[in-house]
Write a protein that binds this DNA or RNA. Structure first.
Length: 820
RNA sequence: GGGCGGUUAGCUCAAUUGGUAGAGCAUCGCAUUUACACUGCGAGGGUUAUAGGUUCGAGUCCUAUACCGCCCACCA
């Protein structure tokens, strides 16, 4: 054995003494990586006198046992299911997912340019689906490509506590199993249950991420509700509170009666439903008829609005009327507002300030009183016997019956109504005024360390508008701007228990007592308010019972994961993670959370760090089934990524998700497509099998080290095609054209190397004068092909790399140089 | 109502700055025990939705139309 190694090393000296081709794998920015192809590292270290020589021997020796195999040992077919978990464990053991380890072990230069992706944290609500698989695949491709090019590559994984989503999953399950509600359990017990669920869900999710082959740095894993992220959230809240950007106000909000919480505008899903449009008068002597689809809310009307230029009603503007409507006394003022469309209905709107966003705004303009008539349980609160405590739909029937009885109903028309529902619970939203916390998006403030005055809206808009952040595909920029333009203040408080509790405390003001704690304001004459990262001293303070919208903590993701605020600065001369890895390079996520998340990250980062969170936003589409339907539990048409990995291999699933799928476009996935890429992995396996069969195993390392000669047309052709493939794939990955790069890697390996050159090589190998060089070309092309395919199908390529070059930490394909 | 995207082979989708329209799957024919049957070779199949325009040249740029899809917006 020792002999074998020595012989080979002697041969390799020859290769090394030739003009040394440093396996430079500089990327487009001219960065060099410290890696070399394994064989070269081995040869070099033999001379370098370090432990590398031993490492090589060890690698070769262990290789004989479980790594490098003779052809008789290599089965005819690749068995992904058994190989993949073993390979992932090798990657984990190597420590190379952590960029610091890469530097320590010398596979990445210490001065390498960083490359960072923050994994969009999956919700801890259950299991991963194909959309997650898509996200993990695209990011892993970007990350592996960057790592092989010598970048200091960090892909930071994590999970999201997903406040409402998670709590409602657990609440439903408890209700089903035990028939009790959260109020029966109490805050503490419910939180205990939710946390147990989240923990279990987290374990499932991380194991699934590993199955997909994600090369993320588990040592830096984060959770949106862990101690560090909680500190970040409280720090941010306090900062925004002090700047007047977070305020508490009694304003109209979206109330979800089913979830018993407020939700933001973005968490509403509109559903078209058949409805009836009723045209009626409040009373016989009321001059203007109005139309509505919600007669029950009319008991909360305080005005009627008409268009200022509407001649029909001009004479009534400014007049006030007292009527008795379905047993309720109303005081109605006629106002003129240009928001009213004179062509719709009767051209007059009954203004219900407490239960309609638009009406609320109209009431503000005309100083109309707000009269709440519906409560948190979607029941009527008016004192009239026939309506009190009735559910809104029952109340609607009651009011309509009353209108008919009184002969006030003038018309009934079928119409389609856009009903606002909560996208998590399906509950019908009841707008109502409530005391809640908001982030002001239009308030002016001075950005830190500068005198520049700005607004949060501008902070969101500017980096995209001036190109510091680019969005792929670019047309989503238009959608982004449109959303910002119509943005209202963001309601951030939720009446649920699972989440970041609002860092605000209240206490009754005691006039005689001198406060030990400096109160930051007073909510009213009788209550003091305290906001800070930590609770105030004293027992008399009571914390706000609400929690924060989950997107508040998600918005901090790119920098809360890097140690902000506790270890944001350099210490002991060492730069902090935040300084090294932020801003991140790419944010890769589904287009459906452009507003929820992407915009919020731009907001939070711009505000807290005066910086951008990422340079590029890559948006992928929705993964659909073979018929183009969305995958859903109720349809039962979902494909489980774990099943795919088990049946076809994770590599096959990855390739199927990526090839031919352009950013921003929905894609379809089917077993047929995945199977095609399982065959591809097998093709790579058999190319390697053929090469190992055709080439003396002692020559493999040498052939991989130096570029071969051209002896025949076939030789020239394949080497030209290889160069073209390298250039094309590299260029496309640089420009994030992943679907094309993946296809090119596939085409080169199968259509050029396997179908053409391997066939041609059979004749050449039989010719003694060509045999050696042909073997050389085969090994050379295979080695480069494995590198080119690795980002897309990391498992099979890593497995084959081990078969060719032995299995040791430093000979892992994942840290080899990208070919040039 | 406003905005955005799409329409290319039987199906699913590509086509980087305008330069011979490609791939996978499916279909048909041939090969036959081979590195791989999880195989190879070959074939058929497209007036790039429609109508105009710009250009030496258009799937690609411009205008209009039709259809499909998505997002936003509580015309009450």
């Amino acid at each position: 054995m020792a002999n074998v190694v020595r012989t080979k090393v002697i041969r390799m000296t020859g290769a090394r003494s030739e003009p040394q081709r440093r396996s430079d794998c500089g990327d487009s920015d001219g960065w060099q990586c410290g890696q070399r192809a394994v064989p070269m590292r081995a040869a070099e270290s033999e001379y370098g006198g370090e432990s590398g020589g031993k490492r090589l021997k060890k690698s070769r020796e262990s290789g004989k046992m479980n790594g490098i195999m003779s052809i008789t040992e290599l089965p005819k077919n690749y068995d992904a299911a058994s190989a993949e978990p073993r390979i992932y464990q090798r990657w984990l053991d190597s420590g190379f997912f952590n960029p610091d380890t890469c530097i320590e072990k010398g596979v990445t230069p210490a001065d390498a340019k960083p490359f960072t992706i923050m994994m969009p944290p999956p919700n801890v609500t259950g299991v991963l689906h194909m959309g997650h698989a898509m996200m993990l695949t695209l990011e892993d491709i970007m990350v592996r490509f960057a790592r092989m090019r010598g970048r200091r590559t960090l892909w930071l994984p994590g999970t999201d506590h997903a406040a409402i989503a998670t709590q409602s999953v657990v609440e439903k399950s408890i209700h089903k199993k035990e028939g009790v509600s959260r109020h029966d359990l109490g805050r503490e017990e419910l939180l205990r249950r939710v946390e147990a669920f989240a923990k279990e869900s987290h374990a499932t999710i991380t194991s699934q991420i590993k199955v997909m082959g994600a090369s993320c740095d588990w040592s830096r894993e984060a959770f949106t509700l862990d101690e560090q992220r909680s500190l970040a959230v409280r720090t941010m809240f306090k900062k925004m509170y002090d700047d007047g950007l977070i305020y508490r106000g009694n304003r109209i909000i979206n109330w979800d009666p089913k979830g018993q919480t407020t939700i933001s505008d973005d968490e509403i899903a509109y559903e078209e439903r058949a409805a009836t449009l009723y045209t009626f008068r409040y009373a016989k002597d009321f001059p203007i008829p109005i139309a509505t689809t919600r007669p029950e809310t009319k008991v909360g009307d305080t005005g009627v609005a008409v268009h200022p230029n509407d001649e029909r009603y001009a004479k009534y503007i400014g007049k006030e009327y007292d009527v008795n409507f379905c047993g309720v006394s109303l005081h109605i003022k006629i106002v003129a507002d240009k928001e009213v469309n004179p062509a719709f209905g009767t051209g007059a709107v009954g203004v219900t300030p407490a239960h309609s966003m638009i009406d609320w705004e109209m009431a503000q303009r005309h100083d109309l009183p707000v009269k709440q008539v519906i409560n948190e349980y979607a029941r009527m609160t008016v004192e009239t016997e026939q309506l009190k405590d009735k559910k809104v739909l029952e109340a609607r029937d009651t009011v309509v019956a009353w209108l008919k009885e009184e002969n006030l109903l003038e018309k009934e028309e079928d119409t389609v109504q856009n009903v606002a529902t909560a996208d998590r619970t399906g509950g019908i939203i009841e707008p109502m005024p409530k005391l809640q916390w908001f982030i002001s998006v239009n308030a002016k403030f001075k950005i830190q360390n500068s005198n520049r005055e700005t607004t949060l809206k501008d902070i969101m808009r500017e980096p995209v508008a001036d190109g510091r952040i680019s969005i792929i595909p670019d047309y989503f920029g238009k959608t982004y701007f449109h959303w910002i333009d119509t943005l209202r203040d963001w309601c951030i408080s939720r009446q649920i228990w699972y989440g970041h509790r609002i860092p605000v405390w209240y206490r009754k003001k005691v006039k005689s007592q001198k406060s030990k704690v400096k109160s930051l304001g007073t909510e009213s004459d009788s209550t003091e308010v305290y906001c800070d990262v930590n609770p105030p001293e004293g027992d008399e303070w009571e914390q706000d019972s609400d929690t924060l919208d989950t997107w508040f903590s998600s918005g901090l993701w790119t920098f809360s994961t890097l140690g902000w605020p506790s270890s944001a600065k350099a210490s002991e001369g060492k730069p902090s993670d935040l300084e090294i890895y932020h801003p991140t390079d790419i944010l890769e996520t589904g287009y459906e959370i452009l507003f929820f998340w992407v915009a919020r990250m731009v907001l939070m980062t711009g505000y807290a760090l005066n910086d951008i969170p990422f340079r590029t936003v890559y948006l992928h589409g929705t993964v659909r089934d073979a018929q183009g339907r969305k995958m859903s539990k109720s349809l039962g048409n979902g494909i489980d990524p774990l099943d795919v990995a088990q049946k076809f291999g994770a590599d096959a699933g990855r390739m199927a998700l990526v090839v031919g799928n352009t950013p921003g476009t929905d894609s379809r996935i089917s077993e047929d497509k995945i199977r095609a890429y399982k065959y591809f992995a097998n093709k790579l396996w058999n190319i390697t099998r053929f090469v190992l069969m055709s080439v003396d195993s002692e020559d493999v390392v040498r052939f991989a080290t130096a570029k071969p000669e051209v002896r025949t047309d076939a030789d020239r052709d394949i080497l030209t095609k290889l160069d073209a493939a390298i250039a094309d794939i590299t260029g496309n990955l640089d420009r994030h054209i992943i679907h094309e790069a993946a296809n090119q890697a596939y085409q080169f390996a199968w259509r050029e190397l396997a179908d053409v050159y391997l066939e041609a090589s059979k004749g050449q190998l039989a010719d003694e004068s060509l045999k050696s060089n042909t073997g050389h070309i085969l090994v050379w092309c295979l080695m480069n092909t494995l590198k080119l395919v690795h980002p897309f199908a990391p498992f099979v390529t890593e497995e084959l790399w081990g078969k060719l070059f032995g299995e040791s930490d430093t000979s892992l394909l994942m840290v080899q140089c990208w070919p040039t």
